[in-house]
Computed example of a mutant assay.
Amino acid sequence: MPHLPPEISPEDLAACQALLAGGSKSFRAAQLLLPRRVAAPAAALYAFCRIADDEIDLAEGGAGALARLAARLDDAYAGRPQSGPVDRAFAHVAARFAIPRALPGALLEGLAWDAEGRRYEDLPALEAYCARVAAAVGAMMTLLMGVRDAPAIARACDLGVGMQLTNIARDVGEDARNGRIYLPLSWLREEGVEPEVWLAAPRFTPAIGRVVARLLAAADACYARSEAGIPLLPRDCRAGIGAARFVYAGIGRAVERQGLDSIAARAWVPGRRKAWLMLSGLRALAWRVGEGAALPPLPATRFLVEAVANAPAPSEATSQGLGERIAWAADLLARLDGMDRRTATG
């Protein structure tokens, strides 16, 4: 394998960050709430996800786009990334953190499912989609934190699935107006809703509300499972991941407050409330490992957990020293304090 320089070049990292500026809420959250040793490689990861999503969307889900992206992955994993800052930066991250190719490969598959407008008959089928577009990213982020244990990866996947289910519950109306439906088709039929008829003229009804409530309950079950994994993470990462758990659950509560109607309006969490939820993530620092950490992975995410378990560990240590941890903690508290004051006066 050709030799890669030990670090992402500042120019390539800056290009990845510029690509994401203003457009990726997930990346902005990582920048704010995670230590910079994680946020920097996350820029390369999210940038590759962005260009993959854009390429598949532009090609309307064509097999050619998926083949081109698969070839780019092959080249990155062979240590000869195609020219361009994103490919070079992602190749560094994949090699340094020993990210199994199956994880970004799963993401590409999920993006292709999105572009082809695939629909899902039941919750297990929907969770298979969530595993690809969200849990795979959660697993990769966990590797960036230097954690590879199967229980931690499984719980990270739980969190990813829960987040994506929440996104779907929040975006029912927006998706329908774009001709897409992610609600489990069997759930709709159980409520007397014919999916094609409803999609032709989407509107809120109590029956749709009951389907959305079931979806949020499934998301909450995933959040509950995920909590046992947070104490398995490095201490300087727990508050950020805890914040993600509370903020996304808060989106679900916002959907409930508007009567489960995410068709007439898209639910949102006010800035002051979001700041409080993010600060709530600090309680994760006190959580202890419990029995839930040993729960088996969801059937839909088992292949991701097994891919990590079967992959070799990275050759270089990615841990940080005590001084950097202390600096990160002080920086996080200062940024959260500033954000809280801004939202309180906004």
Rank of each mutant, 00 (worst) to 15 (best):
D75C: 13
S262N: 06
A125M: 09
P195A: 11
L143K: 02
G138P: 05
A70G: 15
A112F: 05
R203G: 14
R148E: 03
R68H: 14
L123Y: 11
A154P: 00
F97P: 00
Y129N: 01
C49Y: 06
D114S: 07
A300G: 03
M141G: 05
A135L: 06
S24L: 10
G281R: 07
R288W: 06
R238H: 04
G271R: 15
E191D: 02
A21T: 12
M278I: 10
G162I: 08
A284G: 05
Q31P: 02
R325Q: 12
F48V: 00
K274M: 12
A264H: 15
A70H: 10
F97L: 08
E306V: 06
D261I: 01
C130F: 08
M145F: 08
R148K: 03
S24K: 11
A152W: 00
G192N: 03
G84A: 09
S262H: 10
C222D: 08
R238W: 03
A201L: 09
R37W: 13
G173W: 10
C237A: 12
A131L: 04
A40G: 00
E291R: 15
S315I: 11
M145C: 12
G192V: 04
V211C: 14
R214G: 07
V38R: 09
A243P: 06
V305G: 03
E291V: 14
A219S: 12
A30T: 15
V172H: 11
V86P: 04
A286D: 13
V172M: 13
P184V: 02
P231V: 01
L282R: 11
L333I: 09
R88P: 03
L144A: 02
A76T: 00
G290R: 14
V305L: 09
D340M: 11
R245K: 13
W276N: 12
R170H: 09
V305Y: 14
M141V: 05
M339V: 02
E191V: 00
R283A: 15
G22I: 01
R68Y: 07
F303K: 12
L32H: 08
A300F: 07
E7P: 00
E60A: 15
A112Y: 05
G323K: 09
I208E: 04
A307F: 03
R80Y: 10
